[in-house]
Design a protein around this nucleic acid. Structure first.
Lengths: 260, 260
DNA sequence: TCAAAAGTGTTGAGCGTACACCCATGT
DNA sequence: ACATGGGTGTACGCTCAACACTTTTGA
């Protein structure tokens, strides 16, 4: 019965590949976790194991369909909560992926999917909230190597993660986003470790300190981190705007006014 | 008859607002045209007049639906060709807009639309190719004020144009995209005018020259622009990569390798 | 007292800006 | 010749990288 699958464009069953592309939302969630070998933190992200074809059994970015009653960002947040239990503070659109070969297994009857991908940063305390209930199907992976040893990540998700990594490395150089990896109070050494982990190079502690103390959004508290092996470092606090969109950076389109 | 509008998800007429969001592609096309008053060029973009509700009679970005057999960028190019006759060299994804209030006329039965918006730059020679046949429904507008006097642009297109303007102004400061507004050969003064028009401020000719002559992608030809009122300026040529994605700038996701 | 990290001072290179100045051409 | 834009030289100020140095703690 051709009417069963008849859509607004009049396609029938044999033309299912001709259906209008469907929309999905996925998210690349970055967290910094100390690697066991060194004390140095590295970038990790949660992946979910696919329970359906295609790519059944392989790891994929958390995501799902977009419903009719939510904005794109709302959909990303809802999906994150449902699949991982996470509710990141920092969440920003990354890119819309819509290539024809995204599945890389162009099976007959597989519908074409356009994914609008978001990226997020979570603090260590948030990261611990990752759902443990179905822990076999949700797990942290190293951001740079996830899927390398195994059969690779599902779909084009390895490319997407690489792109998100590129964006993170770029953006951390000109936008104040590193704080989203840390708790409310932090030492400058901790903050420097964040930068070093993401940029992949060491930074001069002296110059780093000067740069950061000159930043108005960084506020020195009168507390110090006790218990270390040496001189206790001062704790700082970030007092900038809560949104991920400082004025001079990457404003969300909806916050823009007409050109003055 | 509920079957008339029955789609793949079985929604009927009264539930049309619950249909999964549909996907459209739109493009903000920038060109630099000399304003009649001054000799200074200003930013213009082509808009199409809507012939259907909603926003019938108002100006909107060129765009259309995404078919099942084309990538997002292909869809943008095809749509540009069909609606405006233009084939820009520079074309890049801008943002995916998916707010619930995009129509700002939330009529009953209006389906929710997610727009993936691209932005493009065209040379003056390309810009002249804008279809004249149906000229009443396709016309150039000033990028900064389009829709101000009238009832405004359709949908959220005024916001989208502002966001594209913001992106253009940002990107021209760190990426080599200004050449896409000019012909193959150009004088440094012409190039400076492009920067001045987009940034909205004057630049020191001497320093601008030094900066640009120090750029390896800018190559001096042995030709000079004759016919001016004064000393003929040298013509230059841009010999950089043809794609809009230089390595250190904003690589297209699909060109990224895994982190080294 | 010593090691190690916190924190300060100083220097030099590079770059962008401002601006004085010379050059070449049409009128 | 002279006005005008093309094109060069130079000096100042700022930022950043490098690195020597002092301070403060735990062991």
């Amino acid at each position: 019965m051709s009417t069963v699958f008849a859509g607004p464009f009049g396609a029938n069953v044999s033309e299912r590949a001709q259906l209008p592309p469907s929309l999905a939302i996925s998210t690349v969630i970055f967290a910094l976790k100390p690697s066991r070998a060194e004390g140095k933190p590295t970038l990790w992200l949660p992946l979910v194991r696919r329970v359906k074809e295609p790519f059944r059994g392989q790891w994929a970015l958390p995501g799902g369909p977009l419903t009719a009653v939510e904005s794109l960002e709302d959909a990303a947040r809802r999906n994150l909560r449902e699949t991982t239990g996470l509710a990141p503070e920092y969440l920003e659109q990354l890119y819309a992926f819509g290539g024809l070969d995204r599945s890389s297994r162009p099976e007959q009857g597989a519908q074409r999917v356009v994914s609008i991908v978001y990226w997020a940063l979570v603090r260590p305390t948030e990261a611990e909230l990752l759902v443990e209930s179905e822990r076999d199907n949700v797990a942290w992976h190293r951001a740079d190597t996830a899927g390398h040893g195994e059969g690779g990540l599902a779909f084009d998700h390895r490319e997407i993660v690489d792109y998100a990594l590129w964006r993170l490395r770029n953006k951390i150089e000109y936008a104040q986003i590193a704080y989203h990896f840390l708790g409310e109070r932090f030492t400058l050494a901790q903050l420097r470790e964040v930068y070093e982990a993401i940029l992949g190079r060491t930074l001069d502690p002296a110059n780093f300190r000067r740069q950061l103390t000159a930043t108005p959004q960084i506020e020195a508290t009168d507390e110090f981190l006790e218990g270390g092996r040496h001189r206790p470092p001062r704790l700082y606090r970030y007092v900038g705007p809560p949104t991920p969109y400082p004025a001079s950076d990457h404003p969300h389109p909806s916050t823009l006014r007409s050109t003055p």
